[in-house]
Design a protein around this nucleic acid. Sequence first.
DNA 1: AGTGCGGCCTGTCCGC
DNA 2: TGCGGACAGGCCGCAC
Length: 271
Amino acid sequence: MPELPEVETTRRGIAPALEGQRITEVIIRQRRLRWPIPPELETVLTGQTVRTVQRRAKYLLINAGKGHALAHLGMSGSLRIVPAGWPVQKHDHVDIRLASGQALRYTDPRRFGALLWTADDPLLHPLLASLGPEPLSDAFTAEHLHRLAQGRRAPVKTFIMDGHVVVGVGNIYANEALFMAGISPLRAAGEVTLGRYEALVTAIRTVLSAAITQGGTTLRDYVGGHGDPGFFKQQLQVYDRAGGGCLRCQGTIQIKRVGQRSTYFCDRCQD
DNA sequence: AGTGCGGCCTGTCCGC
DNA sequence: TGCGGACAGGCCGCAC
């Protein structure tokens, strides 16, 4: 679920309530996420004061002095600030209680997400060390995509969803950006010209930025740091619109499986 | 090295 | 109304 805009919206929502706060207690009701929650999340994190809450790719990095908690929201996860002791629902797996009387609550029905701990530089963590550039940074360029794509026969949609190429572009925004750039999701990555990668870089930046402005896209579970849904769903051009009219031409939005993911596009606007 | 797939989970929806 | 099966925003780890 949560792609980059949702994770960034979450970061902005929870950071003010966390930074400068001492962690008084960590309550774990369900350890079994994608990986088991390590014991350090209780033994080391408790008593620490949060310094910063940053984001790298779709990971949130909570700097707690002695190390960093890493959070990933998987497909259905959310992190939000609640009053301590707020009624617990079925999938509320973790509460990190703060001296303020609030708590950071981790909720994840499908448990594809993760809560991890690292005492070292979090950017060197095995899960983060080999990731591609941030799409909203200067390091993300058409030249970067074009160079990496040389010789690649995988579809360009699969290519841009690969976190080692560029981070943060999940299924929704990959579909939207390719539509905006007029590129068929089925085209081999290695056959896309530098000029079209220019358009794609612009489209990815535009779509992600607009989605952040709208607080992300909520299809079902996603809520931001204050428990509110995101509103970018109303601006989706192709995602989940199979059979609907193309908003740019008189064509019809198609759906196909590409890399085992539902892929939406207009075969008249995208080639 | 690049590519394709299974698997992790729960919930929902659709067809019978 | 019940039930099986497909599918859902991510992404690791494996076999080829």
